[in-house]
């Protein structure tokens, strides 16, 4: 008892102080992550937006820090950027839909049908591909999509020829890469859905999926789609590997940063996916999907 009663060393005194001052406690808990959020995330984002209004001096290659709408005018006037944006959004939507369609039954099985033991193994199985290198997986798909690859070997007996390299291959590969990001939120969402709710719905009628499962799981679908959509929208490597001769927004950014050293223009291009995501989130909010969270 005596050891507890004695006001101990500095650690104990600090603990006491924190106990008496909840504000200090909160500050200690949050200051580091907040600093990280503000400086690293928001700061980088702000710098990106600012840079988008600058230009690069053609002669010296230096960035000219002077407000200028030239980059955005270029983006607007050149039809090619609109085409690329639409294509990128189309790919992201396609990937999200494909992932949703594949992930939903899988997540449902994991959360509601499989035994707890099988559930654990399935979660591990879903997570395992995330440990493998992105490039290895993308290249594996490249080999499969080859004219002499597995895909054609399977399809040829049916008289069908695989799509080869191009946007379909890009969508398939991205859908594969991001599938765990759709399955896991869905799994978490469906797991929270009580079994009794399914029983209750079965008890009262037969339209369980549309009226009960889907509305309850919808926020999880949205969470998953935010991942698959944004990850697809920003990707530029997969399309390089299996996309044949197509390009997406990410490639334009990459080319302008890496090859052309035109950082301001790259920043201007990079605002496109940010804007698309903001629109997406606002649209999601409007559907009311976030109200039931």
């Amino acid at each position: 008892m005596s050891t507890i009663a004695t006001p101990g060393g500095p650690v104990r005194r600090l603990a006491g102080l924190l106990y008496r001052r909840p504000y200090l406690r909160l500050a200690g808990l949050l200051s580091a992550p907040l600093l990280w959020l503000v400086v690293a995330y928001l700061g980088a984002l702000a710098a990106l937006f600012a840079a988008a209004f600058w230009t690069t001096d053609v002669f010296t290659g230096e960035v000219v820090r002077q407000f200028n709408l030239g980059n955005f005018q270029e983006l607007w006037s050149q039809g090619v950027y609109r085409t690329i944006t639409l294509r990128s959004v189309g790919v992201a939507v396609a990937v999200t839909v494909v992932d949703g369609v594949i992930a939903f039954p899988m997540a449902f099985y994991m959360a509601k049908i499989a035994s707890p033991r099988a559930q654990r193994w399935l979660v591990i199985a879903v997570l395992t591909p995330l440990w493998a290198s992105y490039l290895v997986k993308a290249y594996a798909w490249r080999v499969m999509f080859s004219g002499t690859g597995v895909l054609n070997w399977v399809l040829d007996p049916f008289g069908i020829h695989g799509p080869g390299y191009g946007l379909p291959a890009t969508v398939v590969t991205l859908a594969y890469l991001w599938l765990p990001y759709m399955i896991l939120p869905l799994y978490a969402g469906l797991e929270r859905l009580p079994n009794s709710l399914l029983d209750a719905s079965g008890d009262l009628g037969a339209r369980t999926f549309r009226t009960v499962i889907w509305p309850v799981a919808f926020p999880a679908v949205i969470a998953g789609s935010i991942f698959t959509f944004s990850l697809s929208l920003g990707d530029y490597i997969t399309v390089k590997i299996v996309g044949g001769k197509s390009q997406l927004i990410g490639n334009v950014v990459y080319d302008n940063v890496g090859a052309a050293n035109n950082l301001p223009f790259a920043a201007a291009v990079a605002t496109i996916p940010v804007a698309v995501m903001v629109i997406y989130l606002v649209a999601v909010r409007r559907t009311g999907a976030l109200d039931n969270l």
């Binding site: 009580p194 009794s196 709710l197 029983d199 209750a200 719905s201 079965g202 008890d203 009262l204 009628g205 037969a206 009226t211 009960v212 509305p215 309850v216 039931n292």
Partner: peptide, 20 residues
């Protein structure tokens, strides 16, 4: 028969009200 074709209804332990 499936539940909805039986003339019974159930009150669940956790009530199972539809949250949405």
């Amino acid at each position: 028969l499936p539940p909805f074709e039986r003339d019974v209804n159930t009150v669940f332990q956790d009530y199972a009200l539809f949250p949405h």
